[in-house]
């Protein structure tokens, strides 16, 4: 057990191994941190230190260029899961009063009709987000915009709470259930389309419940997302999905949800 002696400059194994390892490390470091940064076209280090820091992965100062901004109004609605839980009875009651002016299109029971979506039993977050987007101009509609413009933030919360409180239509009233088509159950993996339910089954705050919505309305919205006419989805999620869906898939999805409640 005389291993202490190995750490000695007299031991040729020590000098050779440490020397060789250090030499490889130093040469590799000079190539990787100095030579390559200068050799790369388009990458012009301002100094030797800049070259070394860049190659070491130290973040550089942020660009001063102005950020790119959208040429349309983007959604300002902030909806998180749980933020609308447990509304008070007075909030629902006030919402019911306000809802009298919605009944002409959306029905007294909130069931909707061909060109107006059903609201009864919809998620509070989705209702609130759409009202706020109509008010802010992130979603355009000549009918909804003037109606939403006069609503205060608490009005919108109350309306949302009221419609979420109403019962959904009975399944028996909208025909028999059928098996969900492929696009609804699994999406289209090859086109990067997730299953509809992965967001719309209540998993993503702000995404609406789709079952029982009028097929014509759903098809029109998918078309609007696809051509950019509707753009109040966050991070282009629905626009990206709708753009990649085939006409047959849009038809299948819209008709499936149109017969569901």
């Amino acid at each position: 057990m005389s291993e202490e002696s190995v750490f000695s400059r007299k031991d040729p194994w020590f000098t050779a191994s440490v020397g060789l390892t250090a030499a490889i490390a130093v040469v590799a470091a000079i190539v990787g941190f100095v030579w390559l940064p200068y050799a790369q076209p388009g990458l012009r280090p301002s100094s030797l230190w800049d070259a070394i820091c860049g190659a070491a992965g130290v973040p550089r100062a942020r660009s001063n260029a102005a950020p790119v901004s959208a040429d349309f109004v983007t959604s300002k609605a902030i909806v998180t899961s749980g933020m609308f839980d447990h509304p008070s009875a007075s909030s629902i009651g006030h919402g019911a009063t306000l809802a009298l002016q919605c009944a002409a299109c959306h029905g007294a029971d909130g069931a909707g009709k061909a060109d107006a979506p059903g609201l009864a039993g919809q998620y509070t977050g989705a209702l609130y987000k759409e009202l706020k987007d109509f008010k802010d101009g992130a979603r355009s509609s000549s009918v909804m915009a003037p109606l939403a413009a006069v609503l205060s933030d608490s009005d919108m919360r109350d309306l949302a709470a009221y419609y979420a409180y109403l019962p959904r239509m009975n399944e028996a009233e909208v025909g028999t259930k059928r098996a969900a088509p492929h696009i609804v159950r699994y999406g289209s993996p090859l086109h990067n389309i997730p299953a509809c339910g992965s967001c719309h089954d209540g998993l993503m705050a702000g995404a609406p419940w789709l079952k029982g919505q009028p097929s014509v309305y759903l098809e029109a919205q998918l078309a609007a997302f696809a051509n950019g006419g509707r753009h109040n989805d966050i991070d282009e999620q629905m626009r990206n999905v709708a753009r990649r869906m085939t006409a047959a898939e849009i038809d299948e999805a819209a008709h499936y949800y149109g017969t569901q409640k």
Binding site: I24, A28, A29, G32, F33, L36, A55, A56, G57
Partner: peptide, 17 residues
């Protein structure tokens, strides 16, 4: 992207070793 290219090169050299 979080690892600098210099360290990637250094590791590449020792991988060759």
């Amino acid at each position: 992207p979080e690892v600098g290219s210099g360290f990637k090169f250094l590791h590449s050299v020792f991988t060759a070793a």
